[in-house]
Design a protein around this nucleic acid. Structure first.
Lengths: 233, 233
DNA sequence: CGGGGGGTTGAGATGTCTCAAGGGGTGTGG
DNA sequence: CCACACCCCTTGAGACATCTCAACCCCCCG
């Protein structure tokens, strides 16, 4: 069942073992409809019945999970659980209950491809490769979420921010080589929520990395100067 | 695609929306082989090729994820990413790469049912309900991992321990009603690793809950006295 | 020109970690 | 049967990282 070698399943494209993002290569040919979402608008919201899976074509999204406050009047916990760049799939957390378990909000004007489940599941039953792809995507998502949990559980703030930058830079690469130049589409608060830090802490760590010469920093513009040092702590 | 109402998919059994654990009800009838694992032994280890999925029949496992240390000589990060009680499924993180991404270690003498993927995938293609179950289980796992990440990112130590106890008590219930009495099969260090805390902190929080009368505590024996108060912080 | 969102930086409060000591089981070998 | 070692757990005290609160800046937009 090795996706790299199994001749029965040639179409799973793992972007990078590291980044753990995949997309449906088979579906590229199928003329699924698209939808445009404005900055700050929700593609879907928690509790809505799931109708489709979505693949980002352009733009960027954040997924927000709500956890009911311990008591009724206390504010519920909120957290950004993932960011979704082009070619990545949204909505996988909803398969188990049939309802979305998170909000998907566009960080900028974005376009998604809509893959209705009514079409997807029969397709999967018919084509082994397709079924395997869907399973692989979901499995990758499990690993991704576990990695995040691990990071939140074990790494200090500085390493979290560094790892975040590295992960992002590897995911935005359109060519084979990761790009050193990136523009963060999200706020410090979004990053902090994702990393389990306060926005001030995120800012401080970015500033520190800047002062040390590991990155260049200008608002949301980041340039990775010393990738090795970034990975090395 | 609502698992509760869709007549095409009657067999998904969600134990509780909260616990987010499911099992293959269809496969109960199939005489899959079993395997016995001794306390402390690994059911599988990171990097091994995946051959099967496993369902716990009796006993308990922990999944350990390894994250390579930032530099080569520093010790790698380790974290317990989940515990697996009877009826729960192990090995789902390996579908994407075809290799196990974690170690599964028995916390006590345990028995698992072995479901070879070579049998499982064709089965899924043939039976819509089966396919849907597998997808639902994996999706549930995504939500579970995201919840864990959320908890690690936002909750203070005390709430983490409380949530852990509640989650466990809901998962061990063999009857309809959650049991107030539970025996923790794992060490404080295991719990701490899972919750992103040090073992001393876990112990202190348990002691504090005990002093407040929220739980009774005697080593690994826990009795939930005031479930409401436990949930309420 | 005023307002609001996003970002930076500082200083004190606080929660968790670290280090350390000691107690209770259990298994093993003398 | 005892002695010892080892593992697990508990508790304390100080160190440290991050959070909290606050002030200020910039920029964009109405």
């Amino acid at each position: 069942m090795d996706t790299a070698t199994n001749p029965d399943v040639p179409n799973v494209r793992l972007r990078q073992a590291h980044a753990l993002h995949v997309h449906f290569s088979d579906t590229d040919a199928i003329p699924f409809p698209t939808r445009t979402v404005g900055r700050g608008d929700a593609l879907f919201s928690t509790g809505e019945p799931m109708r489709s899976l979505y693949t980002v074509q352009s733009g960027c999204f954040k997924s927000i999970t709500t956890y009911p406050g311990s008591d009724d009047d206390s504010p519920p916990h909120l957290q950004v659980t993932s960011f979704h760049l082009p070619d990545e799939t949204l909505g996988l957390d909803s398969v188990c209950t049939g309802h979305h378990e998170s909000d998907a909000v566009a960080l900028e004007a974005s376009v998604v491809r809509i893959m209705p489940v009514g079409i997807l599941e029969p397709l999967c039953r018919e084509y082994a490769a397709m079924q395997h792809e869907l399973l692989a995507i979901m499995s990758a998502e499990i690993v991704r979420a576990s990695r995040l949990a691990l990071m939140l559980g074990t790494m200090p703030a500085r390493e979290r921010v560094a790892a975040f930058l590295l992960d992002l830079s590897e995911r935005v690469d359109t060519h084979e080589t990761p790009s050193e130049e990136l523009v963060l589409p999200m706020t410090r608060a979004d990053i902090g929520s994702y990393l389990g830090l306060e926005l001030e802490t995120v800012g401080r760590m970015l500033s520190k990395l800047h002062r040390e010469g590991t990155i260049e920093l200008n608002g949301r513009q980041v340039r990775i100067v010393d990738r090795a040092k970034l990975a090395l702590h």
